[in-house]
């Protein structure tokens, strides 16, 4: 299969380039529907890997790349189930999303994220698996999880620690503030800046460049420069689950779900 049209995303393969487009309103929230289709995508990408040089991760939603995990679904699930069942569901979700993101992180082709608008929380964690992050100059990045009494759970901290200066990671994580694309580029989170509305076009031209290189050399270079922080990724799931079991998290989720203000990502 060289193309797929799902309810939360679509993808197509053409001339050595896979293009995945997240497209679930309002802002590509990552819940069970999106996760299921990402798992389907990874199975297809595995099969297509021998003939694939690059993969573009993009968004079809005008609001941005992704606002992160589907917190409404998380809250409703937690309300419907008792504590242990809810925690088991969260752990299962985390194990599955980690499997998807770890595979993409190590994929035997070059991954290029084309980011515009909001790229928050789980959405940023998805973008962080990419080898090259291209951002529209109006994009914004944030890890607002602490307002919920949680840490990022989709591999965010281990990947930030791998890729960026620790001082910036602390600022992003411990203040929960969002940063603009210029700042993100200055610290190395963003590799290339695009004019407004041009991130996908630049990602495509970057993919066209990547296709020219020898596949074996490309894979060797990627494996050498980008090791997967496996132990820390496992530890992140444990810390997330320890924190999730506390009542403060339900209060934080409830506040978010009921918040209709202009900055719901802030406490």
């Amino acid at each position: 299969m060289k193309s797929f049209e799902g309810k939360a995303l679509r993808w197509q393969w053409r001339e050595g380039v896979l293009e995945l487009t997240l497209d679930r309103p309002p802002a590509n929230e990552i819940g069970t529907l999106m996760l299921g289709e990402l798992e389907q995508f990874v199975r297809a990408a595995e099969a297509l890997a021998p003939e694939t040089s690059a993969c573009i991760l993009a968004s079809g939603q005008k609001n941005g790349f992704s606002a992160g995990a589907d917190l409404r679904e998380l809250y409703q699930g937690a309300v419907a189930l008792d504590g242990p069942a809810s925690l088991a569901g969260v752990r299962s979700f985390l194990e599955r999303i980690h499997a998807v993101l770890n595979w993409l992180d190590e994929a035997p082709f070059v991954t290029i994220a084309a980011v515009h608008g909001v790229c928050f929380g789980g959405g940023l964690e998805l973008a962080l698996v990419s080898d090259v992050l291209i951002a529209d100059k109006m994009a914004r990045f944030a890890f607002p999880e602490l307002r919920l009494g949680l840490i990022p759970g989709f591999g965010g901290i281990p990947r930030l620690k791998r890729d960026l200066p620790n001082g910036f990671v602390r600022d992003l994580l411990l203040t929960g503030r969002s940063v603009n694309a210029a700042r993100a580029q200055a610290v190395g989170l963003v590799a290339q800046l695009a004019a407004e509305g041009q991130a996908l076009a630049i990602a495509r031209s970057t993919a066209a460049q990547v296709v020219k290189f020898d596949p074996a050399t490309r894979i060797a270079a990627k494996r050498f420069i980008k090791p997967l922080p496996r132990e820390e990724l496992r530890r992140e799931i444990e810390i997330f689950c320890e924190l999730f079991a506390r009542p403060a998290v339900m209060s934080g989720l409830k506040r978010f779900v009921e918040n209709s203000g202009p900055m719901p990502h802030q406490p």
Binding site: A27, G64, G117, M138, A139, R140, S178, N180, A181
Partner: peptide, 8 residues
């Protein structure tokens, strides 16, 4: 979303 855009 527009608030964040204005901030940028």
């Amino acid at each position: 979303m527009q608030t964040l855009e204005l901030l940028s």
